[in-house]
């Protein structure tokens, strides 16, 4: 009887995980304005990111999408507005502090450590969690090795998950583009972020690689419940995988809603297709 009950519990748990019910607001961007000299990159942008959701930020070139991500992970400091992350308002924050609070990201142009192997790249994602001091590391045997092995094990899960076992010891500079993108995703995942910012994860990929990447993004979202904010130009992908879409144009927010609502929005259509003046 109890076994049956346990099984139902497990089933419910896994169903709940797969339904990945979108939870509360985990990150709230409020009235952000950012300018470089006279250029206004972002004007009064506000939106919310909810737990476990996939949020896409779209817009034409130069709309301020990457600037928005750079503001979220502390790379740019906006002149106005505030960001509330997990209930804490943060002022200007350095990127490494944002990373330690659970915001990871990948880049539009791959930003891997070229001289290191794929495994080492992914292991750097766990650096913030590794505590052994320099002396212990110089000795290696004992606590440093134990810690190293624990994190290696976790990284091997990610390697397994992203299907890059064959290249784990290859220097990433030698890997093809699609593989490098995967390693970069792996490095971001290794940090076990609660928000993952993906800057054009599918740029420059062919259809198969895009499908693989979509699968990884959806699987990560499903299995780990990671909240995702992604920038993507492929509308098919955006409409398929995202729960909500934020549209930017010239640094302003045009629309914010479900893919269907955004698709029907007249302003968005005008921004993308142009409008007679």
């Amino acid at each position: 009887m109890s076994v049956v009950a346990d099984l139902t519990d497990i089933n419910q748990a896994s169903v709940a995980a797969h339904a990945r019910s979108i939870g509360d607001v985990v990150l709230s961007v409020q009235n952000i304005s950012l300018s470089f000299g006279g250029v206004r990159a972002l004007t009064n942008i506000s939106f919310e990111v909810r737990e476990h959701e996939i949020l896409a930020i779209i817009g034409p070139n130069g709309a301020g999408k990457s600037s928005m991500l750079n503001v979220i992970n502390g790379f740019y400091h906006p002149q106005e507005g505030k960001i509330i992350h997990k209930g804490v308002e943060r002022k200007s924050m350095r990127p490494h502090e944002a990373a330690r609070r659970g915001i990871a990201r990948t880049f539009q142009n791959i930003a891997l450590f070229k001289g290191m192997s794929a495994l080492d790249n992914i292991m750097t994602g766990r650096n913030t969690m590794m505590k052994s001091n320099i002396l212990a590391q110089a000795l290696y045997f004992g606590p440093a090795r134990k810690e190293e092995m624990e994190h290696r094990k976790f990284c091997e899960h990610i390697i397994d998950f992203l299907e890059i076992e064959a290249v784990r010891k290859t220097p990433v500079g030698r890997l093809p583009y699609g593989m490098q993108k995967r390693v970069e995703l792996g490095r971001a995942l290794a940090a076990q972020p609660d928000i993952l910012l993906l800057d054009e994860p599918m740029a420059g990929m062919n259809v198969e690689e895009k499908e693989d990447m979509c699968r990884f993004i959806l699987d990560v979202n499903n299995e780990f419940g990671t909240t995702m904010v992604l920038i993507e130009h492929d509308m098919g992908v955006v409409m398929d995988i995202s729960d909500r879409v934020v549209v930017l144009d010239y640094g302003r927010k045009l629309a914010d809603g479900t893919p269907d609502a955004v698709r029907a929005n007249q302003e968005v259509i005008d921004a993308y297709l142009g409008v007679g003046h």
Partner: peptide, 17 residues
């Protein structure tokens, strides 16, 4: 690994913490 990360790309190193 932290040293090599800073060597290879300091911005990316900072962004992963």
């Amino acid at each position: 690994r932290a040293w090599m990360a800073v060597r290879d790309m300091d911005i990316a190193a900072e962004i992963i913490g």
